[in-house]
């Protein structure tokens, strides 16, 4: 079982890395924001597997906080950091 946990962690990490290509590539801001979703689920999965593999219960709390923060970050991004549609239409 420990080997499986470590292989799974590595696999999920590679998944996360591959997904980052979309963040770099875009092409729209919305595509980059998908990173929040990707990190939210994949990082939680990695942390939960590591918690079980190492018997570190505290990592489950980290996963919990990660899930919360990913949601807050995404909402803040959509509401604040994404240029409002009016800005684009206002330009001549």
């Amino acid at each position: 079982m420990p080997d499986l946990y470590h292989a799974l962690t590595l696999f999920l990490l590679l998944n996360l890395g591959a997904g980052l290509w979309r963040v770099v590539r875009g092409p729209t801001a919305a595509d980059r924001m998908l990173a929040a979703q990707l990190f939210g689920t994949t990082a939680v999965a990695i942390l939960l597997v590591l918690a079980q593999a190492g018997g570190v219960a505290a990592l489950r709390d980290v996963a919990l906080v990660f899930a919360l923060l990913a949601a807050v970050a995404a909402v803040a991004f959509v509401r604040r950091a994404w240029p409002q549609p009016e800005d684009e239409h206002d330009r001549p």
Binding site: V44, L48, R60, E88
Partner: peptide
Amino acid sequence: KLILIWLLVLLAGASVSHLIARGARLR
């Protein structure tokens, strides 16, 4: 606790994907 974390991720994912889709349409 694991299921609770899963439900939290689900709730966050649903809200965030709706926000992104709606924002993308608006823009």
